[in-house]
Simulated scan of single mutants.
Amino acid sequence: MDIDLIFKALANPTRRQILEWLKHPEQFLSSDECGDFRRGVCAGHIERLGKVSQSTMSNHLSVLQQAGLIQVEKYGQWSYFSRNEALIQQYIEHLQRSL
């Protein structure tokens, strides 16, 4: 776990919002549109929620992925993102111990 990368990733409000969307996708996206979310959320749906360009959203997702906060699974040409709950919990525990 790289604490500095996590702090950097969480410093941006859009990236914090992405984590919220991934935590409760059913509150923000239709299951008709996205299925049951077992694979995660498709990059295109995250992009539409963020109302930013594809390249900007790609950068945000990359920063979150490099920090380990999200995971990506590829299915054909599609990329599905989900939260890395184990690392997020580890980070929370680190904060509780150190701050």
Rank of each mutant, 00 (worst) to 15 (best):
K8M: 09
H45W: 05
D32F: 03
L87S: 06
Q65V: 04
L99T: 14
L10K: 00
T14M: 12
F7Q: 06
G40M: 02
I70F: 02
D2H: 15
V41N: 00
H60R: 13
R83S: 02
E26Q: 14
S79H: 06
H45K: 15
V63C: 08
R38T: 10
I92M: 05
N12V: 06
L95V: 04
E20W: 05
Q27K: 10
E93Y: 11
I18F: 02
E33W: 13
L69V: 08
A86P: 14
G50S: 06
P13L: 03
A43W: 15
R16P: 03
F7P: 02
L99G: 09
A11N: 13
A43N: 11
L87G: 02
C34F: 14
E93Q: 02
S30I: 05
L61K: 00
W21R: 06
I18N: 00
H45V: 13
E26W: 08
F28H: 09
S55F: 15
S58L: 04
L95I: 02
L19R: 00
I3Q: 08
L69W: 00
R38H: 15
K23R: 11
M1C: 15
L10F: 05
I46K: 00
S79M: 12
Q66G: 11
G50N: 14
G76C: 14
G50H: 10
Y80D: 01
L19A: 03
S55C: 14
K74F: 06
R97S: 07
V72I: 13
A9T: 09
D2I: 09
S55T: 05
Y91T: 05
T14A: 14
G44E: 08
I70H: 00
T14C: 12
D4G: 07
V52D: 12
P25I: 02
M1H: 15
F28W: 10
I46Q: 01
P25Q: 03
E93M: 07
Q77N: 10
E26V: 04
S30R: 03
K23L: 09
S55M: 14
E73F: 10
A11T: 15
T56G: 12
F7G: 03
G68V: 12
W21P: 12
R15Y: 01
A9C: 15
N84L: 06
